[in-house]
């Protein structure tokens, strides 16, 4: 694998994996402990509308995705808080509209969209340097916000109502968190694609949770797990000649299920011994 590093696309792929892992480890931790996996799935799918828009108006589709994920994140947050519409209904509606708009925009765009598939399922081997810079900038932004508002986000996640009583602006913070999820989705699109984003937002954090009861350590661990999954999955996809994004997810899923199975059977053995 080391000799592969002489290729720029490989260096970019590893760097993309690293940058994506930072974002999804930190934000994924909030997604998992706050149980907002489904809303994150909704946000990621609306990104497809932005990809289509990018093709249509001729800007970087990943940048185009930002213009869709942020408004849809805000819309889902506001609709679920301020209206009578159940949250999952709002998510379902925006999810589908985002995807449909994407298809229409791409249909309107002149010519054929060659790498559409890579946006849906990711292709870490084709990440251009410009996207790496965008990913790095978003990572820096996410880290700064989470460092600055760590105790606020903790109050929001653990006990929203108590937070309100002691003066935490929980409504605004919740919208901010959804926006951070929207940015993380954008970072992850190149690596695993819109459809698979949700796996990297949940599996590393869910696994990290098995090992620690500290939120900060959970974030750190899930960044590490996420790196292991992306690098390991990338290597496997090379060896087996499989799609990189899907291989990363399969590796993560298999490791998680194996761990869950092992810890379960260990607990059983332990219980029998006692």
């Amino acid at each position: 694998m080391l000799d592969l590093l002489q290729y720029e696309f490989m260096r970019n792929a590893l760097l993309a994996g690293l940058l994506a892992s930072i974002a999804c480890g930190i934000i994924g931790t909030y997604v998992v402990v706050q149980r907002i996996v489904f809303i994150s799935g909704g946000i990621s799918h609306t990104a497809f509308g932005g990809i289509g828009l990018g093709y249509l108006v001729g800007i970087n589709p990943v940048l185009g995705a930002v213009f869709f994920t942020i408004p849809s994140a805000l819309a889902m947050g506001v609709i679920s808080r301020k209206t009578r519409l159940p949250e999952d209904t709002a998510i379902g509606i925006l999810w589908a509209i985002g995807m449909a708009l994407g298809i229409i925009f791409i249909g309107l765009a002149p010519g054929y969209a060659p790498d559409l598939f890579s946006y849906l399922f990711g292709n870490i081997l084709t990440v251009p340097t410009s996207d790496l810079l965008l990913m790095a900038a978003l990572d820096v932004f996410i880290i700064i916000v989470v460092l600055a508002l760590y105790k606020e986000f903790l109050a929001l996640a653990f006990d929203r109502e108590f937070g309100r009583v002691v003066g935490v602006p929980v409504e605004a913070l919740y919208l901010l968190l959804l926006c951070l999820i929207a940015l993380t989705v954008v970072i992850l699109i190149r690596v695993v694609g819109i459809v698979l984003v949700i796996a990297l937002l949940t599996i590393p954090a869910a696994l990290a949770r098995q090992f620690t009861y500290h939120l900060k350590r959970m974030m750190l661990l899930s960044v590490l797990f996420s790196m292991a999954f992306t690098f390991g999955g990338l290597w496997l996809s090379f060896q087996l000649d499989l799609a990189s994004g899907a291989t990363i997810i399969i590796l993560a899923g298999v490791v998680f299920l194996a761990y869950a199975g092992i810890s379960r059977s260990l607990k059983k053995t332990y219980a029998v011994q006692r």
Binding site: A148, K151, E152, F158, F162, V166
Partner: peptide, 10 residues
């Protein structure tokens, strides 16, 4: 967390 109001944001 109970001290949030006293400590303040950021």
């Amino acid at each position: 967390m109970g001290l949030y109001g006293k400590t303040g944001m950021l």
